[in-house]
Design a protein around this nucleic acid. Structure first.
Lengths: 113, 113
DNA sequence: CGGTATCCTTGGGGATACTG
DNA sequence: CAGTATCCCCAAGGATACCG
């Protein structure tokens, strides 16, 4: 499987604990830092910053600063980011659809020696 | 975003360093432990075992033991596992298709203060 | 508001050795 | 062949405090 190493590189994006969640939340248009933080339950300020920087570096989203007081920074998916969002959608839908089944499988598994 | 917590649960599967790679490799039918290890470049024996156990527990694959000498254990996707594989396919294809673009974005990003 | 900086803990995961 | 068992390390990431 010669694609393994290449696939791994993107699983480093996808597998990121928060990245896909950020991409998902941005699907309806740009959001500000605080809006993102509110939208993504449980993310720390530090991890949101780190995740946004990584995604910006990878060309998934853009960071736009308005130099006013108080500061105004908004994040928006790039065209590549939107294609990622589309590619990831089936998986996210699968996850929501199959969560009960997975929970049941775990319970069944844990009920045996 | 009330789905965040639910989506997170599956990102714990997806985000697993090796899980999707295992699912992907199993798409053409059952494989034995050693075959999986050979097919997934860079995975350690320990992590393959751990990943397989987790996926079995989640109902993604089955583990079948033939009690012979030497032992013969094969792993195969369940029907749910196959739907996961299908849901994940677009993302894996996206990853392979956009890797050059991501590399370029990173290089560009790193070339600035 | 939108971050940095710092500290600190946890557990993911590699290497190695042994076994039914 | 298909694992367990151990040891060990480092980096992901949370908490907290401070800043332009």
């Amino acid at each position: 499987m010669q694609d393994a190493c290449r696939t791994r590189a993107v699983l480093d994006i996808v597998g990121d604990k928060w990245a896909l969640l950020v991409v998902r939340v941005l699907k309806d248009g740009p959001l500000r830092f605080t809006e993102l933080k509110r939208a993504i339950d449980g993310i720390s300020q530090r991890m949101l910053t780190v995740t946004l920087r990584d995604l910006e570096r990878d060309g998934i989203l853009t960071r736009t600063v308005r130099e006013v007081m108080p500061p105004h920074v908004s994040y928006e998916l790039t065209s590549m980011g939107r294609t990622l969002r589309e590619a990831a959608a089936p998986l996210l839908e699968w996850s929501i659809a199959h969560l009960p089944e997975i929970d049941a499988a775990r319970a069944a598994y844990d009920d045996r020696p």
